[in-house]
Each structure stands twice: as C-alpha cells, then as structure tokens.
C-alpha cells in the first residue's frame, strides 16, 4: 500500500499521527486524503477546501512529482508510492 509522509507541521494539529507508519489503501491522491480522514477525523479539511480542492498553500508530491490535478486530486498512486503532504513555502 502507498506510504504517506506528512510535514511535521501537521503533527501539531494531529499529534496522534506522529511517529506512525502511515500506509493507506489508495489508487489516487483523493483516496489517500479520504483514507487519512478516516485515520484522523478533520484531516481532509486541513488539506483541501470544502469543494475538495487542494488548498492554495499545500503541496502534494507522489514520489518527486508534484500533484497535477489540484481540483479533484485524481493523480494515480502505485502500491509502492510514497505520497508527501507538505506546506508550500510561500512567501518569506
């Protein structure tokens, strides 16, 4: 199953996730977010807005590739993919 790696900033809001190996059953990035929501209720609204779009200052990488579909998160993930959820380094 794909592995999920979070920016440590998110542990401030979801301390129960810290130190855990996060593996989720997912074929797309949208699946990853919905699975993470099950693990940590409220998580999806930190990453996406209420329309399911990735927030402007959040980045998701599948391995080293930046997510392409920020509107629907339809980018595919492989069983051995690592998915990185990061804050964008916007501003100074």
């Amino acid at each position: 199953m794909p592995k999920v790696v979070l920016t440590r900033h998110l542990y401030q809001y979801f301390p129960a996730l810290e130190g855990r190996e996060l593996e989720v059953d997912a074929e797309t990035v949208a699946d990853v977010v919905s699975q993470m929501e099950k693990l940590a209720p409220g998580f999806a609204f930190y990453i996406c807005d209420e329309r399911g779009r990735l927030r402007r200052h959040v980045n998701i990488f599948i391995e080293e590739n930046l997510l392409r579909d920020r509107a629907c998160l339809s980018d595919g993930v492989e069983p051995d993919s690592r998915v990185f959820i990061m804050q964008a380094l916007s501003g100074g």
Binding site: H9, F45, Y46, I47, D49, R55, V58, Q87, A88
Partner: peptide
C-alpha cells in the same frame, strides 16, 4: 486562521 491549513 491557520494560513496554509485554512480557517478553523
């Protein structure tokens, strides 16, 4: 207002 993570 959490910036990257939206309003909470």
């Amino acid at each position: 207002g959490l910036g990257h993570w939206g309003a909470k």
